[in-house]
Structure formats: C-alpha cells, structure tokens
Amino acid sequence: MASEQELTSTGYIQHHLQNWTFGQHPDGHWGFAHTALEAREMGFMAIHVDSMLWSIVLGLVFFFMFRNVAKKISSDTPSGMQNFVEWIVDFINENVRGSFSGKNDVVAPLALTLFVWIFFMNLMDLIPVDWLPMTAQLIGQYVFGANPHHVYFKVVPSTDPNITFGMAIAVFWLMLYYSIKIKGVGGFFGELAFQPFGKAGLPANLILEGISLISKPVSLALRLFGNMYAGEMIFILIALLYSGGIAWGVLGGFLQLGWAIFHILIITLQAFIFMVLTIVYLDMAHQHH
C-alpha cells in the first residue's frame, strides 16, 4: 500500500520522524494513529507512546542502577559499579556545590536525575537508527498483525520536543515555586516589576523580566531538543547512503562511525548543560536581588 512511499528518501525520513501516537481521534474514539496526518489531527489529546516508553524505561534503568548501589553501599573500599556511581554522584555534588549557594536538599538529586536520565535518553541516539524501529515493525507486523508502514517507533526521547519541554516546564515550576517560597509573592513579583528600571519603568521592567523568565525554560528545552534532533537527522541522512550501493554504503559506514564518535561528546555535553543550567536557574530562584 505505502511501499512506494516507503522507498523514497522523503518517506523514509518522515517515517523516522513520526512518533508512535496514541490519542483521541477527531471522531471521539481513542486509538493509535496510523499515519502522520491522523496523529496531527489528534491535537493535544494524544500521547507519544514510544517517547514515554523509552523515557520511563531509561528512567528506571537510571533508578535501579543507582538504587542497587545505594542499597548495599558501604564506606569501605568501593568496587565495580559502586565506583562508577560514586564518581557520578561526586561529580554532580561538586557541580551543585559550585553553582548553588542556597540550602536545598532537592537540587542535588534533581541534578543527578536530570544528568543521568538525559544522558541515557541521548545515548539512544548512538544505536543505529534502523535497528529498533525495524524490530518494532517486525513485532508489529508478525505479533500484532499491523501494517509495518503504520508502525512508528522513535527511540530517542530527547528528540521529541514534548519530552524536553516536559522537563524544562517541570524545572520552570520548581523555579516559580522556590522563588515564591523564598522571596514571597510580593518579592517575586517585585523582582519582575521594579527591576531593572525602578518603579517608573514598570511596563518595560515587566516585559524585560518576563521575557528573561520565560526564555529560561524555552532555551533549556530547545537547546537539548535542537541538538538531539539535528544529530538524529544526520544519522538518518547517513543511513540513507546505505541504499545507494556498496561505495555509498562504505562511505556511510565511515560517516556514521565518525558522527557517532563526535556525538558522544554532544550527548554528554547537552546532558551536562541541561543539568548545570537547571542548577543555576534554581540558584537564581533562591537569591534575593
């Protein structure tokens, strides 16, 4: 049915960029979207099953990895996994101590969760782009009897803006919560209204401070999403070379290897930036100006 469409590059790319969506169809009943158009028509009342699935699975991987160590941790000579976990925890702790001046028990675990979780989500990018979607298509086709072209499976949650914005908005709520908790409602809105130009420039203050406040979660989410989306896109484009014969295929192999090695830097860096900026924003929420 859609085999012709599947063979074109555009179709291949579009298929790769479409989430597996479960939601409310325009006619009111709930179900999976079979095409990109159907997914779009669902509007807000839909959920990306693949993004949420991988996000939760990777979150659980993080949680149990650290929980297992935490359960039997001792202050004797560490070994194996404990070494690794302690190294990360120590690294996060150093960062939080360096950037966060207030006293808050939430920030450090939050930074740890963000860093490791986002790193794992980004790490999914290094799995060759077709492996998991193909597997999902085979399972969809032979286990559930679905049309393989209607099986969408995006495996890198951080290339889904919903995921990055979801985390950034959560951080944003925390910023608002701590701002109001520490400075009071008056103090918080005072900062928005009376700085930097004093009482006389109230409208200008509101616009400036409002934008700078809103821009924090937006930049946080878009930075991560943009980097990961672009990286994913390049992997997809490289994967297209494999359909161009042996010469293109070999070139694609080298390109993919090179880009993957370079991408290791990006995925770590993006996880780190997201974490550090979160700490800094929360620190700003704790400070009086």
Binding site: L17, N19, T21, G23, A39, R40, M42, G43, F44, M45, A46, I47, H48, S51, M52, S55, I56, G59, F62, F63, V106, P109, L110, T113, W117, P157, D160, P161, N162, I163, F165, G166, M167, I169, A170, W173
Partner: peptide
C-alpha cells in the same frame, strides 16, 4: 512534532523520578 499530552506525562514522570 506535535505538542500533546506527552508534555504533561514527561513532567509527571520527571517529578516521580526526582
């Protein structure tokens, strides 16, 4: 690239893990 319930789902998941 539709913005939908995943946004809220991820926020909740995030808070639970934290």
């Amino acid at each position: 690239m539709n913005i939908n319930l995943t946004l809220i789902g991820q926020s909740i998941t995030f808070f639970i893990f934290v």
